[in-house]
Design a protein around this nucleic acid. Sequence first.
DNA 1: TGCTCGTTGTACTGATCGGTACAGTGGGCC
DNA 2: GGCCCACTGTACCGATCAGTACAACGAGCA
Lengths: 200, 200
Amino acid sequence: MEVQAASTPRGKRTRDAIVDAAAALMYVDGVAGTSVDKVLAASGAGKSQMYHYFKNKEQLVGAVIDRYLEQILGNQPAIFTLSSWADLETWTEQLLDVHRRAGGPIACPLGNLAGEVGDNPKLAPLVDQAYRTWESHLERGLEVLRDKGELIPDADPARLARAAMTSVHGGLLLAHIRNDLTALQDALGIALAYLRGFKR
Amino acid sequence: MEVQAASTPRGKRTRDAIVDAAAALMYVDGVAGTSVDKVLAASGAGKSQMYHYFKNKEQLVGAVIDRYLEQILGNQPAIFTLSSWADLETWTEQLLDVHRRAGGPIACPLGNLAGEVGDNPKLAPLVDQAYRTWESHLERGLEVLRDKGELIPDADPARLARAAMTSVHGGLLLAHIRNDLTALQDALGIALAYLRGFKR
DNA sequence: TGCTCGTTGTACTGATCGGTACAGTGGGCC
DNA sequence: GGCCCACTGTACCGATCAGTACAACGAGCA
């Protein structure tokens, strides 16, 4: 066998444990700051498991990126069912709640990675795709609003979704570096205000 | 002597060469991805110089952060003399021009670092301070506009400056990861539109 | 019971990491 | 001319890095 399989429940559990440990460590210490050895120590797995399921560290990082997207979207379930202005507010509240609850740093795991792997030809496309997936849910919600007649007819959901993503990530970056949720809160407020400018 | 001095023109040149090489390498490969050895090879300096001027790698990164701020502000000189709406547009044009000219990745060097050193207790405050300095120039310009009566009297320059920073950095993040300047261009357009909402 | 194969533990490698030790060297000031 | 000290070159250190080799384990199936 080559790699990546995990055809057994036990194997799946081990693989998941490795990815989970890597995701948690890399969220705080970055990719290069998180050694394979540390990941294995934290997950309780041995080196042979790691290289049984992943060809190399880069491939593990790829799995971590996927895990981050799952976690992120899981923390903002309202994004899947957006169909009113109230839903949009609920969504921004969920974004804030994640970090209100969390003990860790105020930061988007994908955003943290972006600077570090942004120029890696293998990993950058994965991060890009994760962002696009995230954005697509937002866009779909805005399409629903437009079709319900709550947005002016010629509003462009794709463009508005991108604008909202920009605000969210700018807010997250500033909030991270100042360790102050207010920056994100303001950014979300401005994003909502911007969207409301297209209210029908 | 301990460290950091450079009391001689020759010493200053060497120190600068080290910081410049480190800044260029870390912009692309990140902090952890840039070893001291690589920096010294690129700058032509020896290890004894490096540890003559810096206590350790962390302190070198501190100097790199300062260098980034100089480079960034140097690339947007309009930020120092903002006093009209036209100046603001010039400023956003300069922001775009930096990356139109550059051969490297579309990214803010400080933003790239943010994810990696955002939780480092020594370096995070330096990044924070750099952002605040950047923002303060913007804020000062908006105060001038307000005092000239081009902003409504109760507009809050600090808040508006923060909003603009959010847009800029969100736009830069998205533009970086998609390798597409359009994201930054749109973000700047939206930021300007938002500011114009406070036009007198 | 015994075979099979996905799974696991451990020991190891060569390269590279950040950092140190120490012996110089060369330019400026008296 | 000679001294001084900021500056430089090189060799080295232990730790840690990503990745490999290989022998064994154990659950399901016959």
